[in-house]
Every structure is written in structure tokens, then in C-alpha cells.
Simulated scan of single mutants.
Amino acid sequence: MNPIHSLIFDLDGTLLNTIADLAHSTNHALEKSGFPTHAIEAYKYFVGNGINKLFERALPEGERTQENIARIRSAFLTYYDAHNADYTAPYPGIPELLSQLQADGMALAVASNKYQRATEKLVRQYFPDIRFAAVFGQREGIPTKPDPTVVRDVLQVTGCTAEETLYVGDSGVDMQTAANGGLVSIGVTWGFRPRTELEECGARHIVDSPDEIRRLAVG
């Protein structure tokens, strides 16, 4: 493996456990529109492809219209903007990992399918001492992961090559994003998706603890 100079992290399920706040906010929006709600665990399989896809999956099969998705989105955004840190927290060992990697001189970035405003807010709130080179969420007119546009945008900011960069995430979408961008992927097992999904989607490495990420990065 080439010497590593930068790492790109997914946010939800990788750095932060956001699932309860995403679930409560979506359930609030569904309930407000008269649709059935779901258990928190179910949301681990609804998230990962941006919020419109989240709402499409959460709606009953016969109700997945653009109109309903827009209605749920509107109610969700109002609620989630106010409640996106009620239950959210970094995974154990993540703040320490980021501090160590920063001290090692690594360029660090976030690439998420969460909408940009919330991505920036949560990164700022939970990792105030980390100087991320780039924090990219879902941006208007930019395709979501697994499209590699966000990876190319990060590399442009960091000045690092794909060969010098590791991509860390918890889902098949993340592993595909890394492959599409020409990056070595690290799948984490503490997130929202099972190890089998990471394996099936070609994870180059699979780790069970943040310490293992640093070992892969710095040797």
C-alpha cells in the first residue's frame, strides 16, 4: 500500500451514531402526515443514500410519490434541524482517533450523503478541535454517493492523490464510493450495516475498532 497522507470519513454510522435522531425525526414527519412509523432499528436499512431515499423507503409502498416525499422532507427538516443532537454521539474511540490522526499530520475530510447544513453542524458540534480539510454533505446539483464526485472534490481540496487516501465508511454505498474513486476502502463494523454487506461490496479492509484505522493509516 502507498504511504497514506489523508483519510475521508463517512459521517452517519462511521463517526457519529445518528440513527435515533434520524428515526425520531422521520417518525415525527410520517406521523404528522398520517403515515405509519417504524422502529429505530429499521432505519439502519433506510439511511445511506440521502434523505429523499430515506423518506421513500420509510413511506408505505403505495405512497412513495414525489408529493409525499416532499411533504415528509419539509416536516423532517424543520424537526431534525432542532433535534439532530438529542441522542447523537460519537462512537467510542472516534474523537481520540481523529486527534491522533491530526497529530500524525494526516489531512482529514468528511464525505456524507446527509444534507450539507446538518453535516456541517454536527461535525462542528462533536469535533470542534479537528481541522477538517473539507466537510461535504449532500449538495444541490452534486450526485450522492456512491458517485465519486464528492471524493474528487475532497482530493482537490487536500491536494492528495487517490493512492494516498483511505476511505472509511460503514455501508456498501461507502465501499462502492471508494472503489469508484480509486481509493482503498475500510469498512467499520460498529455502524448501521452488517459485516456481510461490507464484504459483498468489496471492502479492502474491515475493522472492529478505531485503533485499527490508525494502524492501517500510519503503519
Rank of each mutant, 00 (worst) to 15 (best):
Y43M: 02
Y45N: 15
S33F: 13
E56K: 13
L77V: 13
H83K: 13
L108S: 07
P128C: 09
Q138G: 10
A133I: 01
R64N: 02
R124G: 14
L122F: 02
I94Y: 06
F127D: 08
K53P: 01
L77R: 10
G137Q: 03
E120N: 09
E63F: 06
N113K: 04
T78N: 14
P36M: 02
F127G: 08
F55Q: 04
D104S: 06
Y43H: 10
T88C: 01
D104V: 11
F55D: 03
G50H: 05
I94E: 11
A134E: 08
Q100G: 12
Y115H: 07
E140T: 09
Q138C: 07
A82E: 14
G93N: 11
S74N: 14
L59D: 10
A58I: 10
E67W: 01
G93M: 09
K121Q: 13
N68I: 00
V123W: 11
F76T: 00
E120Q: 08
R124L: 11
R71S: 10
E140P: 02
E67I: 11
Q66R: 15
Y43A: 07
F55V: 02
A85K: 13
G62A: 13
P60K: 03
K32C: 12
S33E: 15
A133F: 11
P60F: 06
S112V: 04
S112D: 06
E140H: 00
